[in-house]
Amino acid sequence: MRVRFPQTAYILGAIVVCVLVYFFYSHNTHKANVVLSADKYIPDRSAPQGYFSGERKSAVQQQNFAPIVVPSKRNSSFDYKAAMKEMNDAQVPMDDPRLIQIIRDYYIDPPSLEPYTLENPGRLEYSNGQTPFVDSRLNYIEGGFYVEAGALNGEKGSNTLFFEKVRRWNGLLVEADPDNYEVLKTKHRKAFSINACLSTKKYPNMVTFNKGFNRGRIYNNKEAEEWVKREKNLPLNTIQVQCFPLYSVLLALGQTTVDFFSLDIEGDEMHVLETIPFDKLNIKMMTVEFVHGVNGEETLRSFVESKGYDSLLKVQRWDGGVNDIIFRKKGLIH
């Protein structure tokens, strides 16, 4: 026999359910806001490495942190450019102590301690989708370290600003174009920065660089010359820029673990990757632009996978402005 309930009973039941849902949501939201406030949040250091925390996931506001300090000893009377030219000519190895010291003392700029001056200060995510994907695959870790090569002006399309503002990561911004770098410095990023390019060789070298805002690139071979000719509305505007191997710059910072490496340098990505001693650097995740290199997507993918990585995702934007592959180290545990 079917039991019939009065209509009022259904209404009362619905109200009770709504009230329970509201209190459950309010309790969890309040808990997250209290625990994860910018001033009071303390990471759970007792949790095992790789521990997934829903609270950490919901930390989506800017947090304050003190960037790491790397002592340098700059001597104003030392002609470091002449010394650098000698090392370029000698093609010194990536781990040459003199090279490491000069990079640390004369080329790397320290993180800013001033407040951000961003065009969009209220935003937390500035990338084209790469950042939230990497964040989730790294289990929302705090206090990591990033490298962004092709950092542009430090804000537009940045794949790393979220990690700095929200996850309190230290990092390194690499930008070769001095015009872009000048603007980058005004943003007051809480990261080390260097106005140089990543070398496509396993030694430092001075190269010709064609400026072009987000289309600037090394211009020292036939491949690059043809690429610049094909690019619409891109005039020839060359300067001389110092390049360093990525490994050398990281040694100068005493940093051999990189949680996230963003590589977008308009065509020389493969050449830079070939210089990296993956047995000496622990790079956990990478996003690499693939569209401008002559080697092609599959060659790039195969090379990185041969170094012990899985290809997780290909990111492309409808207008062709983004063409990245995201890689993660095999067997990665955080």
Rank of each mutant, 00 (worst) to 15 (best):
G296Y: 11
K185Q: 15
D79L: 13
V183F: 09
I108S: 03
G308R: 01
D44M: 03
R74D: 07
V21G: 01
V35R: 10
I141V: 05
F78P: 05
H30T: 13
L313G: 03
T200C: 02
A47D: 13
A38F: 02
A47I: 09
D109F: 02
N221Y: 03
Q7M: 05
F162W: 13
M1H: 13
G144E: 10
R168K: 10
Q61L: 08
G212R: 06
R98A: 05
N323S: 13
D319V: 04
K202D: 10
I218M: 11
D324T: 02
I265P: 00
L300D: 01
D259I: 06
F244I: 02
K187Q: 15
Y25E: 12
I100E: 05
Q91T: 11
L300H: 12
Q316A: 03
K284Q: 14
A82C: 10
V17C: 11
R301K: 10
N210P: 11
R215W: 14
G296R: 08
S77F: 07
N180T: 07
D89Y: 01
D39M: 07
N153P: 08
F260E: 03
Y80M: 09
I326C: 11
G157A: 09
V34H: 08
F260G: 02
Y41Q: 08
P6R: 10
G143F: 01
R104A: 14
P132E: 02
Q49T: 09
Q240P: 15
N233Q: 15
D268K: 10
V16S: 12
A82M: 08
S302M: 07
E155H: 14
F260P: 00
E114M: 01
Y140E: 00
V34Y: 04
E55M: 10
E175Q: 09
I108G: 03
G171D: 15
R2L: 13
F290D: 00
